[in-house]
Design a protein around this nucleic acid. Structure first.
Lengths: 385, 385
DNA sequence: CTGAAAGCGCTTACAG
DNA sequence: CTGAAAGCGCTTACAG
């Protein structure tokens, strides 16, 4: 056995086929003209040598690595795993690989990931931008934007940045969910969110606030709790805090599925029942939600659709098609009514709603995209297309 | 504004700093010797130009791309999302990025992904190898192995390949779960698995079979169902098939969390109750499991620990430390007993077990790794270290 | 400590 | 259709 290079190069193939590297490259790469006979010789040589082109070398010349980066909070949040999956499916069809990055909503981790992606010369980035505790906007977003590589925001926007963005209707969904609770007799409603410097979170709080205001219920800041860590543990702590208040809420909104599960932990621990003692509405439906002891009413963001749209947009940018960089797509959430939001607060008459289907009653039909809106920079009012 | 290169190169930095590229590279790369004064000039120039090194170019010379590939069935399966996350955390600390690949258990997709990763010159691959319907072993595994790049298997092994492997104790866990059901009076137990050409699945069926055999219950092939798609839909169809049998089982084992949720869909649809009409044990615990209408008894594979171990192993291989390529680590699963497995089959006296904690009763303590075993190639008996 | 030069493995004008 | 040569942006011996 002769000592060989670790892996065959185009040069090895060319030598074996008796051609120049240029010709070998053309035969294998499918570019340029090669005679049928030469092509055969080259392909045969490549096969014999187990030749596998070096994408790094190709990338150097072509200025395209055929990779994209996706930066999200945490893959273990089903909302993000669906997003990652849908992105892979979309860009995979175009020959791109996906580099996955988790930030845990740390602005520092996010920046480090973004820089690594830039150094790796990914062709584009899909970013769910995070924000600092004191309201600093995503540094990663700024740096990627400044680098000039194609960028699309998903789930969250960054104020003042002209970057194509796909989000859900956080404000109106929160308003609808809150109204639903109010209509079921609740007047003290807690809301567990992530860092409020995230636009998704501030919008949900704003929707919540508007619903209260419409029903002449005073907004009480102490009922809005930042879970800090937007996972089950964070939901647990935030809920505990709320239920230990002197005047605890009779209903809760939880800004993601992990938070709502943390809430259930506390509720069970305290021996309370849903929805009799405490009503609960969560964000982001999950497969188990209809099978819970008390099936959870949910604001369900269409994660798959959002991600597909974002990925298609990125692909469009990568193929140098003209794109509207101020595109701002708002995809409507579904409000899935199950039992967890159904009863009146403790001490009042319990009223059972109409029979629910196994999967819950879906108030809004689930079209892929319900509204497309362009956000005019400088305005807060999105204009319909 | 002058037209510039899209992004500054080391050459640009060197020119501005008045040094050679070699020196500039040394100053920025932290290799070789540079005087403090020169370093300052270079760093300043780099800052001014927003210089960001081209990792592709570096990779060419260093023969290391600082990326690894991870190939799994589907990120949307919580088992795999935890694995991906744990891998990222581990290798991120060593400066590596993670390229995520989903196969949907398609041997063709898996091979395509593996080839793409090889072309991108990832430094190593962590693979959960799939298998063909007719028993063809993973082609991806073969091709990656042949390429010589560091490879670690997770969750599944490939017979006869000397590749470090981290799996869970599928056989004994299945045997324990089945025994548990038998002890609760069940004699017709259905098992919903994925493709049985996957070692995980065949081992679970074997554990199931051994438990039956120990209790002198005849093995009935018709009670073993391949879900084909190992998701909620697959679980739904497989369960439907089983419950529509002339003599349906009184208990079910489901080989992952999505399958068990699909099973619950059918059970609810048919108006059956768990565990009175049908008992259920699933694989892979999830946050919502204790909060289900009937909390699910679960075989919980320590996904996080498995992934950390696999990733550490890969890192060891990448740093050229001596490694035992026949390392075969079996991590013990926890058996979490909740209510879904608790009752006798319909018609028999219902016996309620001892009070369960909220989170379930864990039969085996949850240490990170319970057993480490080396699999001697050629033998079927793992030997303890 | 610093620089000139070669080279990593491709692709791409440019000739022929 | 084919080849020689330059070049992508780094790093790395090799001199000095």
């Amino acid at each position: 056995m002769t000592t060989q290079a670790v892996v065959a190069t185009l040069d090895d193939v060319a030598r074996r086929a008796g051609t120049s590297v240029a010709t070998a490259g053309r035969a294998l790469g499918g570019y340029g003209k090669v005679s049928a006979a030469t092509r055969e010789r080259v392909l045969k040589a490549a096969r014999q040598l187990h030749y596998r082109p070096n994408a790094l070398a190709r990338s150097m010349k072509q200025r395209s690595s055929l990779t994209i980066g996706v930066i999200v909070g945490n893959v273990c949040n089903p909302f993000f795993s669906v997003i990652l999956r849908a992105i892979e499916d979309t860009v995979g069809g175009h020959g791109y690989q996906v580099i996955m990055c988790n930030t845990d909503e740390s602005i520092e981790k996010e920046l480090a990931h973004a820089r690594a992606l830039l150094e790796h010369r990914v062709d584009g980035i899909i970013l769910s931008p995070t924000a600092g505790e004191n309201g600093e906007a995503s540094l990663a977003a700024k740096e990627v934007y400044a680098s000039g590589i194609p960028l699309v925001f998903i789930d969250r926007a960054v104020k003042g940045m002209k970057v194509p963005t796909v989000v859900s209707d956080n404000l109106s969904a929160a308003q609808e969910a809150t109204t639903h609770l109010i209509e079921h007799g609740h007047r003290r409603i807690g809301i567990i969110v992530g860092r409020r410097t995230l636009d998704t979170m501030s919008e949900r709080v704003e929707g919540y606030r508007r619903a209260l205001s419409q029903h002449r219920i005073e907004f009480d800041e102490s009922l809005v709790v930042d879970a800090i860590h937007v996972g089950v543990e964070g939901g647990y702590r935030a809920t505990k805090h709320l239920l230990d208040l002197h005047r605890p809420p009779t209903a809760l909104l939880a800004a993601n599925s992990l938070l709502s599960l943390g809430a259930l932990d506390v509720i069970k621990e305290k021996g309370l029942t849903v929805p009799d003692n405490i009503a609960l509405i969560g964000w982001d439906d999950f497969y188990a939600a209809p099978h819970l002891e008390i099936p959870l009413t949910m604001v369900d963001q269409p994660a798959h659709a959002m991600a597909s749209i974002a990925a298609e947009q990125l692909m469009k940018m990568l193929s140098n098609k003209p794109v509207d960089h101020s595109l701002h797509i708002i995809v409507k959430s579904n409000f899935i009514i199950r039992e967890s939001s159904g009863a009146r607060p403790l001490g009042e008459e319990r009223r059972i709603g109409p029979a629910l289907t196994k999967r819950g009653r879906i108030r809004t039909p689930p079209p892929e995209v319900d509204r497309r809106e362009i956000h005019e920079p400088g305005t807060d009012k999105p204009t319909s297309i």
